[in-house]
């Protein structure tokens, strides 16, 4: 067994630790791992080029940008924020828990492309969450705002990851099924999907409790600000 290509992993770790540009780190790691496995330079270039071309599907989110950009220019984010600000019983925690529930349920039915960081988090959820937090404290600082935006993105990821596994036609279930089949264990895909349910429920509970705690913390911060003017 050739252990030398593992230095490609070490290159990734070192590059991130040294805070080098991540894109450059990844390219260097690919070159290190390829050369140490004994690939010639022409073969390595072929591998890099071919695999990069094969992953073009990952940048198709680019096509959502014209729409989102034009709508933002016309005030989409402002409108989303105003809308939340007007609705009295739509609190910060309710907004995020509601989004989480919808995202998880849609993912369970395989409708994963319906939301996402470009499509929904940046133009809608993040400004709504900020507006909901402003209802608690109208002048929250930038650190707190960024924490809220990051939490909105985290909520989207949590809903997606721990919802889609229950969908039997989803890649993960098929991958597990296919792996076992190749190794002579034939399972019912529905059983695999069923075993994802407890974690899906746990993910909903954990993230919801965190949203409630974040709301509580915002209120506590305001109290403290008022207490010591």
């Amino acid at each position: 067994m050739n252990y030398w290509p593992l230095l490609g992993v070490a290159a990734v770790v070192a590059g991130f630790a040294l805070r080098m540009n991540p894109a450059l780190v990844v390219v260097i790691a690919a070159i290190v791992s390829g050369l140490l496995s004994g690939l010639s330079i022409p073969d390595l270039l072929t591998l890099l080029g071919a695999k990069f071309i094969d992953s073009r599907n990952l940048l198709v989110l680019l096509l959502t940008l014209p729409t989102i950009g034009l709508l933002e220019r016309a005030g989409l984010r402002e409108h989303a924020a105003n809308w939340i600000a007007r609705m009295r019983n739509f609190t910060f925690a309710r907004l995020l828990i509601g989004y989480l529930a919808v995202r998880q349920i849609l993912s369970m039915f395989g409708l994963t492309g319906i939301a996402g960081h470009a499509q929904t988090v940046r133009p809608l959820l993040a400004p709504m969450a900020e507006a909901a937090a402003e209802k608690i404290d109208p002048d929250i600082d930038l650190d707190e705002r960024e924490r809220i935006r990051a939490f909105a993105a985290a909520t989207d990821n949590t809903g997606l990851f721990f919802g889609e596994d229950i969908f039997i036609a989803f890649g993960a279930v098929l991958l597990i099924y296919g792996f076992y089949e190749q190794n002579g264990i034939v399972l019912d895909p529905r059983h695999i999907a069923l075993w994802a349910a407890p974690t899906a429920i746990a993910a909903f509970v954990v993230q919801s409790v965190r949203a409630l705690r974040m709301q509580k913390r915002l209120r506590a911060l305001l109290e403290r600000k008022r207490g010591s003017p």
Binding site: G8, A23, S33, G34, L47, D54, S55
Partner: peptide, 9 residues
């Protein structure tokens, strides 16, 4: 895209 490429490598 770069990371998908690295995974393949």
């Amino acid at each position: 895209m770069l990371l998908a490429m690295l995974g393949a490598v």
